[in-house]
Amino acid sequence: MSAELRVEGLSYSVDGHELVHAVDLTAAPGETIGLVGPNGSGKTTLLRCVYGTLRPTAGHALLDGADLHTMTHKARAQRLATVPQDGQTDFELTVREVVAMGRSPHKRFWEADNAADAALADAALDRVGIRPLADRTFPSLSGGERQRALVARALVQQPALLVLDEPTNHLDIRYQLDILTLISRSGTTNLLALHDLNLAAYYCDRLYVLQAGRVVASGTPRDVLTPGLLAAVYEVSAEVSTHPTTGAPTVTYLP
């Protein structure tokens, strides 16, 4: 299941300082949309406004036309799952218990997990490659293992929209590719922030480039990732070629 996301004129300010300015963004059902831009460009703040940790000071985030910020927490969690950057928990829960938490939006208060819930959790653990770690405590995991557990929890939530902030953080290259492939094939609508432009070019249908809280470019990776834009936004010299196997634009940075 997937849904249409529309971000309309969304802004967020703190103490008169505007961190996100009048962002318009769309994601069609099933699309994978990437947010790219240098550090401090507003990617994480925008994502937090979409998934509800922050309330926009102007504008809206709409999922199939419904304002995400007027939904109850439970109703929003039934439609939207998030993997925040560097998600942490100090609770001595097992990995399986953390992943099973993704079922809570679909259950009554204190309702126990059943066999179907357990099967969904085990399947998600298999999909992200950490089933052997299921009985380990979450705090005992490495950063990359924690990241995969949080992706599994989001999948167990069975959302229409996945919002992910740097989902490849702490992952070695094999698991970066595995996780992004899994996300892109999940059947959900996906909005994710990425630092690696080559991963963004390969896995995202469209990109939005943020600079100082504003969208300065949007479109397909081929349209967006140009030497001129990289010089203007990232202040680097780069060549952009077409990968001979994948056909995706490939950025090569120059000294």
Rank of each mutant, 00 (worst) to 15 (best):
S2W: 07
L5N: 13
R6V: 13
E8N: 15
G9Y: 08
G9I: 09
L10E: 07
L10P: 07
S11G: 14
D15I: 04
H17V: 13
A22G: 10
V23Q: 14
L25I: 09
T26D: 08
A27W: 04
A27L: 04
P29G: 09
G30W: 11
E31L: 01
E31I: 03
I33G: 05
L35D: 00
G37F: 11
N39K: 05
G40R: 05
G40S: 02
G42M: 12
T44C: 11
L47T: 02
V50H: 06
G52C: 11
T53A: 14
L54R: 07
R55L: 12
T57S: 14
A58R: 15
H60N: 15
L62I: 03
D67N: 15
D67A: 14
D67K: 14
L68Q: 14
T70M: 13
M71W: 15
T72S: 15
A75K: 13
Q78F: 07
Q78I: 07
L80M: 06
L80F: 01
L80H: 03
A81S: 07
A81L: 05
T82M: 12
V83W: 00
F91V: 15
E92R: 15
L93W: 06
V95S: 05
R96Q: 11
R96A: 11
P105H: 10
H106N: 08
H106I: 05
F109Y: 15
W110I: 09
W110G: 09
E111Q: 15
A112I: 06
A116D: 11
D117V: 04
A118T: 14
A119K: 11
D122R: 09
A124V: 04
D126W: 04
V128P: 03
G129Q: 02
P132F: 07
D135T: 12
R136F: 03
F138Y: 12
P139I: 04
G143Q: 06
G144L: 06
Q147A: 10
Q147N: 10
R148P: 13
A149H: 06
A152T: 03
Q157C: 03
Q158K: 06
Q158I: 01
P159L: 08
A160C: 10
P167V: 02
N169Q: 06
N169H: 07
N169F: 01
N169Y: 02
H170T: 09
D172T: 01
L177T: 11
I179S: 05
L180V: 08
I183Y: 00
G187W: 13
T189N: 10
T189A: 10
L191I: 14
A193G: 06
A193V: 02
L194V: 00
L194E: 00
H195S: 00
L197F: 00
N198V: 01
L199M: 12
L199D: 05
Y202F: 06
Y203W: 02
D205T: 05
V215F: 08
V216E: 08
A217W: 09
S218P: 08
V224C: 13
L225N: 10
T226E: 08
G228T: 10
L229T: 04
Y234Q: 09
E235W: 08
E235H: 15
V236T: 13
V236F: 09
A238G: 05
V240A: 01
S241R: 09
S241D: 13
H243T: 01
H243Y: 03
A248I: 01
P249L: 03
P249D: 02
P249T: 00
T252F: 09
P255L: 12
